[in-house]
Amino acid sequence: MNIAYWIVAGLLALFYFYAGTLKVIRSRDQLRPMMAWVDRIPVPALRALGSVEILGAAGLILPPLTGTAPWPASAAAIGFVLLQAGAIAVHLTGEDRRITLNVGLIAAAAVTAWLATKP
């Protein structure tokens, strides 16, 4: 289970670290081709979302890597499940109906949360 956790959590952390960094450093115009929904939320909220994604990525990797308390990794994974549930709601209430990536990220985060609880 340990190897499976590191594979799934590592890929998930890479994705969220990349996506979060883009949301923090890029302008709305630069993000629009990748994220059609960016015009629907204020820039400070977009920056905060990016920061949460970066912190969540760190939460998936750092606690298991350092051997500290195991619960932050589970909490980060569950947070990503909730984040993607909200993302699906944003996509479905707007004009962008593409949610395949969001569903895949929910599945990966749920598997990560489950694997994080295994010894």
Rank of each mutant, 00 (worst) to 15 (best):
I41C: 03
F17D: 01
F15W: 15
Y16R: 03
R47P: 00
Q30F: 01
G20Y: 01
P44W: 13
W37Q: 13
S51Q: 12
T21I: 10
D39P: 01
I41D: 07
A36I: 01
S51G: 11
L46G: 02
V52T: 11
S27M: 05
S27H: 05
T21D: 03
R32Y: 13
R40N: 14
L22P: 01
P42W: 03
P42G: 13
L14M: 15
F15T: 13
M34E: 09
I41R: 03
Y18C: 02
S27A: 07
R28S: 11
W37R: 06
P42E: 12
D39W: 02
L49K: 00
V38C: 04
Y18P: 02
A36R: 14
W37F: 14
V24I: 14
P33S: 10
T21R: 08
Y16F: 10
K23M: 13
V38M: 03
R28A: 15
D39R: 08
R26S: 09
M34W: 07
R26M: 12
L31S: 08
M35R: 01
L46W: 00
F15N: 08
R47W: 08
V24T: 06
L49R: 01
P33T: 05
M34S: 12
A48L: 15
R28D: 14
V43E: 14
T21Q: 09
I25W: 09
D39G: 13
V38A: 02
K23D: 07
R40M: 13
L46K: 00
R47I: 14
K23A: 10
F17W: 11
V38I: 07
A19C: 06
K23L: 12
G20A: 13
I41Y: 00
P33Y: 06
V43G: 02
M34F: 10
F17Q: 03
A48K: 04
G50Q: 07
S27I: 00
A48M: 14
R32A: 15
R26E: 10
F15M: 05
